[in-house]
């Protein structure tokens, strides 16, 4: 992917064209069906951002007299378009607010793990020696602890809650970035422009930031996209164990976990958030998959 720079010295020193430029060039080639999923993703994001404007009601307002009403029910002049849940809250409003919790957990966790993993990977590749050994052993160590177990233990220490879930996800899932970045950066180290930068005495931070990072960024984006989906699922999994985002804040995972007991009597409590979560993860995975294919020179 990065081996096609002509032999002019000036061009050799400059980093390769950035991912953004290539992405813009590639946007025109995005197949039509993909736009559907991009639109779904954008729709959910918009829904999450504008939740207070879009939601018909307070997602936490309970009405114990209007529990588990079917979609379309109207109770005392209040209509429940997607039904009401086990505490008589409006499922539609909770889904809209739930988009907020579910997506922001995933976004923040992806950012956190991405930053940690990228930094670790770059450091290992650039410094080599004991730093490399330490980072790689740390990665081995993290990989040898099952992620969900580690998360359960950490949540037991920190207590569940939005921030702690982000922390737990961020601290357990960085190894994938570290490995990808490390491998990629290692292959860049012998590149002429990196060697030149080292030769003229550019500080390490600048080499990592200006020469290595831009060239591994595409890979990071691909991993991040696919990780985003996993994070959403992981949060749902934590919710199953009662350790996800805490009530009354709605998250899709938590809604599904509570609603699963009612699938036979009130399917809409878990059904709608389940469908939304499915659509979200599906869209992100398909987009990520497409990006991965694009990034992989073998598959062009």
């Amino acid at each position: 992917m990065n081996a096609s720079v002509p032999g002019v010295l000036e061009q050799e020193i400059r980093p390769l064209p950035r991912f953004g430029a290539r992405f813009r060039a590639g946007a025109a080639a995005v197949p039509g069906s993909l736009w559907v999923f991009i639109a779904i993703l954008a729709g959910f994001a918009l829904m999450a951002l504008c939740a207070p404007l879009v939601a018909p009601r307070d997602p936490t307002a309970q009405n114990l007299l209007a529990r588990m009403k079917a979609p379309g029910s109207v109770i005392r002049g209040v209509s429940y378009l997607l039904g009401s849940d086990e505490l008589g809250r409006d499922v539609l409003s909770r889904i809209i607010y739930g988009a907020r919790a579910s997506m922001s957990v995933a976004v923040l966790a992806v950012c956190l793990s991405g930053v940690i993993g990228t930094a670790a990977g770059l450091l290992a590749a650039y410094c080599r020696g004991w730093v490399e050994a330490a980072v790689m052993r740390l990665v081995d160590m993290m990989l040898s602890i099952p992620a969900l177990l580690f998360a359960v233990i950490t949540v037991a220490v920190l207590g569940p809650g939005f921030i702690n879930v982000v922390l737990v996800l961020g601290l357990t899932r960085w190894t994938r970035y570290a490995r990808v970045v490390y491998g990629q950066a290692l292959s860049l180290m012998p590149q002429p422009y990196v060697r030149y930068a080292r030769f003229v005495g550019a500080p390490g931070l600048s080499i990592m930031g200006r020469h290595l990072l831009p060239n591994v960024f595409g890979q990071i984006v691909v991993v991040a996209t696919l990780e985003f989906g996993s994070m959403v699922l992981f949060e749902a999994g934590l919710s199953f164990l009662g350790l996800g985002v805490q009530p009354p804040t709605p998250s899709w995972g938590a809604m599904m976990n509570v609603g699963r007991h009612y699938l036979d009597t009130a399917w809409w409590i878990a059904g709608f958030p389940g469908f939304c979560l499915f659509l979200l993860v599906l869209s992100v995975n398909i987009i990520g998959d497409y990006l991965r294919d694009r990034m992989d020179p073998r598959l062009r």
Partner: peptide, 22 residues
């Protein structure tokens, strides 16, 4: 019940945060 209690307490003007622990 925990959530219903929280709601009732907010209704009377108290601020309540649920802290779930194992």
């Amino acid at each position: 019940i925990v959530q219903a209690v929280q709601q009732m307490l907010s209704d009377i003007g108290l601020r309540v945060r649920i802290a779930m622990m194992d």
